[in-house]
Amino acid sequence: MSVFPLFLLQPALAWTTFRVGLYCGFFIILAIAFILSGAVFVRFENIWPLVRIYRGGFLLIQFLFLLGINTYGWRQAGVNHVLIFEINPRNNLSHQHLFEIAGFLGVLWCLSILSCLYSDYTYLPMQINPLILYGFMLLFLINPFKTGYYKSRFWLLKLLFRVLTAPFHRVEFADFWLADQLNSLVFVLMDLEYLVCYYIFELQWSNSRGLLPRDQDSGGHVCHSYSYGLRAVIQCLPAWFRFVQCLRRYRDTKRAFPHLVNAGKYSTTFFVVTFAALYATHRGRSQETENI
């Protein structure tokens, strides 16, 4: 198999470089603006719902930016990541493209938070802003039209599907690389789960500042507990993907080391999460009994 030389990879256009600088500049300015605004507007409210709802998006954007740094480092070191990940060598994202996407999403993230903080002036309920932000990010990913890095998005979606269906096909390098990244991004999944839970169980839709409730106005602490079970399942999912990938690799190669050893390593996550959930649930019930 011929190896596509790194120097033939398509360089980023000057317009892409300009957009990277533009988005990064806007992000820095808007980040300073929302930090100062938060210090002024947030006084006696409970800030944690807002923090947890937006934290996952920020971590995802940060991941894209750091992936761009990794890509730059790989190319500088002569690592042919395009061949390793089986990406189309004539149509792939450079580090500048990743910086551009991260910068653009970062600007939207900052604007969404500022819109939350200034909801009294924009006449847009605070709780609508995260839905718009994450809805746009989801549409950007699954957009079926051939715009916005269509082939790269399709490659990512295909890879995600392979991770979700790991036991039923051969596992390649890109598959377990992405599953490993999901293990690192488990807080993103947990925060997205918290977003859904909060909007269903705790958010008071009649309150236009529902993401900054006062303690006495909060609708309970369902989403901070394991009481409804889904939280523990979400927390175990990334480890489960790697666990079944390791079992599939053992089935294909018949090598106990390292595949069964890795499977055992990832299986410990199930015990950690299970006992943490049991402990948290038991402690919560004990406190309720003492209060009674």
Rank of each mutant, 00 (worst) to 15 (best):
Q235A: 06
G25D: 01
I101E: 11
W155C: 00
R285T: 06
W155V: 00
V107P: 14
I113F: 03
M1R: 07
Y226M: 14
V163L: 02
G68H: 05
F18C: 02
R283N: 11
I87L: 12
A276R: 03
L6N: 14
Q96E: 15
L164R: 03
V42I: 15
A102C: 12
I28Y: 15
M126P: 14
V42G: 01
W109Q: 04
Q10A: 02
L59Y: 14
I47Q: 04
S184Y: 12
V82I: 13
Y228P: 04
C197L: 05
V196K: 09
C236N: 13
C246H: 10
A179W: 09
I84A: 10
K158F: 00
V261L: 13
Y198N: 06
A239Y: 03
I35S: 12
L9Q: 12
H81D: 11
R52A: 08
I35A: 13
M137Y: 12
G135D: 10
Q181M: 14
N80M: 01
I142D: 00
V222C: 06
S227M: 02
I101A: 05
W155Q: 01
P11E: 13
Y134R: 02
A239P: 07
Q96W: 13
T122G: 15
E86L: 00
M126K: 12
L93F: 07
L131D: 13
Y118F: 15
F7H: 12
V107I: 14
C24V: 08
F99W: 12
F63M: 09
S152H: 05
F85N: 11
I113V: 08
F176A: 05
L260M: 02
L211V: 10
K146Y: 08
I113Y: 07
I69P: 04
I32T: 04
N143D: 02
F26A: 13
L141V: 06
F104I: 01
F140D: 07
R242Y: 09
T71H: 11
S286P: 03
F241G: 11
S152L: 02
L108D: 04
S184K: 15
L164E: 02
N129G: 02
T16C: 01
R214D: 05
D215F: 10
W177H: 15
V3L: 15
L247Q: 14
A256C: 03
Q235D: 07
W15I: 08
P238D: 02
S225R: 10
W109I: 01
C197R: 08
G220V: 04
V261S: 06
L195S: 11
D120G: 04
L9I: 09
L22I: 06
F41S: 03
V20D: 00
T122D: 10
L278D: 06
S94H: 11
P130D: 13
Q10G: 02
G57L: 09
G264I: 01
F154E: 13
M137E: 05
L247E: 07
I234Y: 01
H169P: 01
V222Q: 08
I234A: 03
L192H: 15
F65D: 00
Q10V: 01
A179L: 04
F243A: 11
Y121D: 07
F44A: 11
E100K: 15
L67I: 06
Q235L: 13
Q204G: 07
L66E: 08
P144I: 15
R248Y: 06
